[in-house]
Amino acid sequence: MENQIFSLGRFTAYLKKYLSENRSIRLQFIILTGVFSALLAISGGSMNFFNLTAAMFIFAIVLASSFSAYFSTRANKIKFMLTPVSQLEKFLAMVLHLYVVVPVMFVVVLFIAQYVAILITALFTLSMPRFTMPFAGIEINKDLLLPYFISYFSASAFYLMGATLFTRHSFLKTTGLSIALGFITSMVVAISGTMQIINVAAMENLAQLNDFGLSHYLTVANVVSVIMILLFLFIGYMRVSEMETNETRK
């Protein structure tokens, strides 16, 4: 008997269906290519990677929120819930879309956009196009790559979780929740930070904070972020698997 939690054949069939039903991504692909081409052409072919990826960041969280469409009407919910694949496979398709399809699409968009920008520049300056190596004009600060990807994955996971919790106006509600949680977190961090300064000051060793502080906090923040990503995804998955057509109070 086929595995009821995960089967590669079933998952592949579902992924095909999923991508086919989310065909609007092709249109988004064309729009993104156009926008980046224009930006690269205007900036003379050289741009900061993080400025460019800001668009991907926004695109990903909007896309993650748009998953709420699967649960926004009873008809959509029924269609989603009764598709004969496991709840894990359904959720995995969403995660794969956000974590693999979108970044890959983004790299491809940048690749194409760079050459389109060269052609646009050549057209406007009436000169021969000067083709360069792929991504030659994209400046990347490697030190910021890890925090960037962690924040990309955590934001996408948070908005994906939001899409399963708030089936209507998911983007706005999730943003509201993130602001509220951000406020609470900053309060906790501020209070704990103050407590630590008081403790260190009490030990009359303020220098210890500077030596120990930044790298220690960055490592802790990264670990906490990874745990949070897993937690958001887990909540989202649990919500999908426990969802009912008409939500009831038990």
């Binding site: 008997m1 009821q4 079933r10 008809a75 029924i78 009764l82 694949v85 496991s86």
Partner: peptide, 22 residues
Amino acid sequence: KRLPQTMQNIYLLPEEYDLPAV
């Protein structure tokens, strides 16, 4: 439990429905 094995043996035609643009 909504196991795939169970779901492939049932089909529900709901009162409210929609079809994708395919």
